[in-house]
């Protein structure tokens, strides 16, 4: 009797200890295989002679040297730098301005916030469709203004190889700036009012209060906004497909569209894998330090 109960209890204890890990393990296994295993697989492919299908003949750094000599990749990298920096700077400037204005005890604040933020709920394909036709010279803004009587009005950025990348900025800023506003607003609401009071008693102007005290305290919000926006900029794919399809020509090619077309339509899987690896590296350079610091603060 006594022996069976202790044995029973030992089994219970084992189960009790292992159960939480057992529950977690399917998710963890899935992520290990489908995230990290797949990353290694693609990384490996970037050193092989894969074309239409994966193939395992190693070619060293050849795909990377080819990648950086292809004109389309150069364009994609230039574009993501132009797009990314404008996108981040404009979203932050606009978001900060709107957050400060909304923080002045505005009537109907909740209603206005709802309007500023709703684009975040939309698919980039929807956003792209709306802006594609709105910016189209034949039927959109240009045609409308001309029909109002300003016959010489011209706005053809979306058809112009040099300017098309800026139409992507316009649509992307429209979609995300409300979200950045919400992040800054949350930051503003967390600021300690005592310091402000003290500074005001010392006779500081509103402008000085914001510049010297409020905005410096928004550093964490700036960090978060930068990380989120930079990572969205590098991953941008849907919006380009819907808005310009990468065109005119290859004028709005971004790394994500480059990877897709080289891998799946041009049958250069090795080069596609190399470009995906570069994308991962740049995102990791931004995300890993951020996640690391967040998790360490928590402890």
């Amino acid at each position: 009797m006594t022996i069976t109960t202790t044995r029973h209890r030992a089994g219970d204890d084992w189960l009790r200890n292992a159960l939480p890990k057992l529950v977690l393990s399917p998710s963890f296994a899935m992520v290990l295989i489908f995230v990290y295993g797949f990353i290694l697989f693609t990384f490996y492919l970037s050193f092989t002679d894969s074309r239409i299908l994966p193939s395992y003949g190693l070619v060293g750094w050849e795909n990377y040297t080819k990648l950086f000599s292809v004109r389309a990749w150069g364009i994609a990298v230039d574009n993501v730098l132009i797009f990314g920096s404008l996108y981040i700077v404009i979203c932050c400037a606009l978001g900060l301005m709107l957050a400060i204005l909304l923080d002045q005890q505005i009537r109907a604040e909740g209603f206005i916030r709802t309007i500023y933020l709703y684009p975040m709920a939309l698919s980039f394909i929807v956003t792209g469709t709306a802006w594609k036709w709105f910016l189209d010279p034949g039927i959109g803004l240009q045609a409308v203004v001309r029909s109002w009587g300003w016959e010489s009005f011209t706005f053809e950025w979306i058809k112009d190889s040099d300017m098309a990348i800026y139409t992507i900025v316009i649509a992307a800023v429209w979609q995300t700036s409300g979200f950045v506003m919400a992040m800054f607003l949350a930051g503003l609401r967390g600021i300690d009012n005592e310091v402000l009071k003290a500074a005001q008693i010392d006779g500081a102007s509103n402008w000085a209060l914001y510049r010297r005290i409020v905005i410096p305290q928004l550093r964490p919000a700036f960090m978060s906004a930068f990380v989120v926006l930079a990572h969205m900029a590098i991953k941008s794919y849907d919006l380009i497909i819907a808005l310009t399809g990468g065109g005119p020509g290859t004028a709005t090619e971004l790394p994500a569209t480059f990877m897709y077309s080289y891998t799946f339509t041009r049958n250069q899987m090795g080069i596609g894998a190399a470009s995906a690896t570069i994308m991962l590296m740049s995102i990791a350079a931004i995300m890993v330090p951020y996640i690391w610091s967040e998790l360490r603060e928590k402890k």
Partner: peptide, 22 residues
């Protein structure tokens, strides 16, 4: 914490990196 960090980073990877094997 490491397990969680690994799960978390998986949210932010560019999915281009998993398209071919998937």
């Amino acid at each position: 914490t490491i397990v969680f960090g690994l799960l978390l980073f998986g949210c932010f990877i560019p999915f281009q990196m998993v398209l071919i094997p998937m």
